[in-house]
Amino acid sequence: MKEDRYEIRLSGSGGQGIILAAVILAEAVGIADNKYVCQTQSYGPEARGGKSKAEVVISERPIDYPKAMKLDLLLAMNQASCDAYFYDFKPNGLLLVDSTFVEQIPTSRSVAIPFTQIAREKLGKEIVANMVALGAVGQLCPMVSVSNLEKALVARAPKGTKELNRKALREGIKAAKKFNLHALPRSISPEEEEEI
């Protein structure tokens, strides 16, 4: 089936601000970029345990099924979520991990950035690791404009934290710019299986 949607899953542990990052991403895409967007999240006990996930489906057309089916981009902020949410990854998808916590990376189509370490060392607050990661997602995802992402972030962030969050986002963008996606293998599947 011809692709008409781009699917992102953000994951980490509960309390890392995964859902907030997804909401900001969805607002940037849906309100500023005028694309269709569906944002969903794990709901219930799971959201309070070791793993938390939020999904954003982006399309130029109205979206039918609201959840992710085959991931174009997976962000994993810790090893547990990387292991748990990698299962429906596309062969040509991109895995983005927080290398502060993720050591075993299940694919060669991956980008490893120490989001938490950057947050701690450059911004003085680990809590904004999610925004550093969001900056990287914005930089690496072709469906999102980083300037709109920044606008959406500033609109959402509570007063007094706007500047910190903006800086965090920019650090993430900067870190992601160092990676050349074309240097990665095109797909993790053998060529003949790719069309399925």
């Binding site: 849906g30 269709y36 967007v37 569906c38 944002q39 969903t40 709901y43 979206i63 609201p66 959840k67």
Partner: peptide, 10 residues
């Protein structure tokens, strides 16, 4: 239902 209730859209 729970899916409709918690899906965010524009």
């Amino acid at each position: 239902d729970e899916v409709v209730a918690h899906t965010r859209e524009i």
